[in-house]
Design a protein around this nucleic acid. Structure first.
Length: 664
DNA sequence: CGCGGAGACCTTTTT
DNA sequence: GGTCTCCGCG
């Protein structure tokens, strides 16, 4: 899906009709010359489509010698972009590299990582893996004796922000987590420790992919020159969500020719929590004073009533480019604010209205702030037999049993991957923390050589039960690694089948009550893996493309309602949209600003509210025809069994009365 | 040392 | 609902 695109023959487009397909504003963008260019594009303005036609134009002009880099932010957007590019163009003779930042970084790093001290079969660690590393460091330094020491995930967040904003850990803590000021030294110690550890593991985390890409480009003139020549034009979608680090990388690559076009909507910036740098888009014209600025302000998606509500809401934000979206589709129905007594009543209202709407179920979505907001709604939809798809919650590839089976591949692919080794080994009965740790220690001393695991020396000191299962582990692992040797690498799907045929399946049957459904997931995984030729490629994809729905689920149920977090709904549209849980403290989320280190991602209170308001804006502008905003008056109060009276969200209260009608 | 059970605690968003 | 922690048994 997100392969790099390399085509050989002379290029051509499939009869793209720019005149017919684009309006005047969009044509301005598409026909712009090289040089820096900023496109501010409102919701529903066809911004991605414009970007794709720009690619078509470049291809048609035969950008010499080759090279367009098309970067976007989420996997979903990348996938859609590439498929649309493909449908529009027969891409020959032009290299179009398209994908997410992380994906592109991985493609480039695999070729040059040796320059930075890693081997090119490095493992990509997910958040959980990194949190594990942090935990290990915390234990090692005895920091957990301080009962109030923050959780590993919190530490990880701080490290990630520092990387993405390209500043020191001390700055992040001072600016955003002042109550942890006395822990700065500990954090830096942990950072250093896990950096060394990752080198040893031959593993990179998500942030490293970008940090190291930047370092590669800065430190190696020839590499930089190569990619600057290769990518003669750089286009970045969703620019408002890029981090400082990502913008730096883009600036460096574009440094040679300055053919950089960025497209974004500052009103839709919703990723500050993970280091999105608002200044990138607000300050673009300062960094590129000669940039041409285009605004796309015509909305093709929503009715004027829906836009009026969204505009009225976003107007309250101070930091933004001023723009007023105008609809092309007429007034339409007023958005409706619905008061419900309880969460259950809200769920039942939504379910009933879904049945009452005279549109396809595919044209209906429920968009919420937090995953758990979907619980009661799911129950109600199930009860009434309304088909739905949940696009949030645990990601398919992040489920424990998927990660379990993948850890065998990870280990065989990169035998220095301590995390994978231990994870796989601990699946065997009789082997736990201590045993796996001591086995790893011995294994590392023997140069990470798999045959050593089969010797008597390795099994020394194990209980007889552990000895037997360890033998099973060794047999499997050597089977997996052996077969690859002469064929130049075994197919990932074959390896997965081998694992399933081993004792592992027995152990799993014994260990899990829901064994059958887990087995189903694994079969799907195997099915999905058949499209990959190498383990490295397969594992990269698993790490970088965290699909929420199980692969292949698209074909499952043709017609269904979508339940999704707002973050994941970005860029999509439906005729009818429900936004539940518009309750003060839930949306916007208010976290008590206490000093317990539990969280505190936002810079200031008002910045946080503004980001939440942008999120509300994104949600509202997903609707084409009808928008239902609902809240409940009573919420169970945890602690007591009473219920507490609560207020509707400030985002509802601050709306002008002309913008909506109410319903009891 | 492994492992299962019981109970506490918490749940924002994602590459 | 899911994960983390503590405890006692084999």
């Amino acid at each position: 899906m997100y392969r790099e695109y390399l085509f050989k023959e002379p290029c051509g487009s499939r009869g793209v009709d720019f005149e017919k397909e684009l309006n005047e504003e969009q044509r301005g963008v598409v026909f712009s010359k090289g040089g820096p260019c900023l496109v501010i594009a409102g919701a529903g303005s066809g911004k991605t489509r414009t970007l794709i036609y720009r690619v078509a134009k470049l291809v048609q002009d035969g950008v010499p010698p080759t090279g367009i880099l098309l970067v976007t932010f989420t996997n979903k957007a990348a996938r859609e972009m590439l498929s649309r590019v493909e449908s529009l163009l027969s891409l020959d003779g032009t290299d179009v590299w398209g994908g997410t930042f992380h994906h592109i970084a991985n493609l480039i790093l695999r070729r040059h990582i040796g320059l930075l001290g890693f081997k090119n079969n490095y493992t990509i660690l997910d958040e959980e893996d990194r949190a594990d590393l942090v935990s290990m460091a915390i234990t090692e330094f005895g920091l957990n004796e301080n009962k109030r020491f923050p959780k590993a995930a919190t530490v990880s967040t701080v490290l990630s922000l520092a990387a993405n904003l390209s500043v020191g850990i001390d700055r992040i803590i001072a600016d955003r987590f002042p109550y942890m000021a006395e822990l700065i030294d500990d954090f830096m110690l942990i950072d250093e420790q896990i950096a060394g550890r990752k080198l040893k593991l031959n593993a990179l985390d998500f942030d490293d992919l970008l940090v190291l890409l930047k370092r590669l480009l800065v430190e190696h003139e020839d590499v930089r020159a190569h990619y600057s020549r290769l990518f003669r034009h750089i286009l970045v979608d969703e620019y408002q969500d890029t981090s400082k680090l990502q913008a730096d990388v883009v600036d460096i690559v574009a440094g040679g020719h300055r053919n950089i076009m960025v497209v974004g909507d500052d009103a839709q910036s919703i990723y500050a929590f993970r280091g999105a740098h608002y200044e990138n888009i607000l300050g673009f014209t300062n960094r590129y004073p000669d940039a041409v600025v285009y605004k796309l302000q015509t909305n093709y998606r929503s009715t004027q009533s829906i836009l009026d509500l969204a505009n009225a809401s976003i107007m309250r934000n101070k930091k933004q480019y001023l723009k007023q979206l105008a609809a092309t589709r007429g007034t339409g129905d007023l958005p409706r604010i619905v008061r419900c007594a309880s969460t259950e009543e809200q769920a039942s209202f939504i379910a009933k209205h879904i049945l009452a709407e005279d549109v396809d179920l595919n044209e209906i979505a429920v968009l919420y702030r937090s995953h758990y907001h979907s619980m009661e709604i799911q129950m109600e939809l199930t009860r009434l037999g309304i088909p739905y798809e949940v696009r949030s919650g645990v990601r398919f590839f992040e489920q424990a049993h998927i990660k379990d089976i993948l850890s065998f591949l990870r280990f065989v692919n990169n035998t220095r991957d301590e995390l994978a080794f231990k994870r796989a080994l601990k699946l065997y009965p009789g082997i736990g923390m201590k045993t796996s740790a001591s086995l790893w220690e011995a294994f590392a001393k023997k140069d990470y050589s798999i045959p050593f695991l089969g010797t008597d020396g390795a099994a020394q000191g194990l209980s007889s039960r552990a000895r037997k299962t360890f033998r099973d582990f060794y047999n499997l692992v050597s089977l997996l690694s052996d077969t690859g040797a002469d064929t130049g690498g075994k197919l990932p799907s074959d390896m997965l089948l081998t694992i399933l045929k081993s004792e592992y399946e027995e152990y799993m049957r014994f260990a899990y009550a829901n064994f059958e459904s887990r087995l189903d997931d694994i079969r799907q995984l195997i099915n999905y893996s058949t499209r990959f030729k190498t383990t490295t490629e397969f594992l990269s994809e698993m790490a970088l493309v965290a699909t929420v729905v199980s692969p292949g689920a698209e074909e499952r149920e043709k017609e269904h309602v979508v339940l999704s977090s707002i973050h994941q709904a970005k860029g999509l549209e439906w005729k009818v949209v429900f936004i539940p849980w518009l309750v003060d403290g839930k949306f916007p989320v208010i976290r008590n600003g206490r000093n317990d280190g539990s969280d505190g991602i936002s810079e200031t209170e008002s910045d946080a509210i503004e980001e939440e308001r942008r999120l509300f804006y994104v949600a509202a502008t997903r609707a084409k025809d009808r928008l239902y905003l609902s809240y409940q008056e009573w919420l169970p109060d945890k602690g007591s069994h009473n219920t507490a009276i609560i207020k509707p969200s400030r985002f509802l209260r601050e709306l002008p009365s002309y913008a909506y009608e109410t319903q009891e």
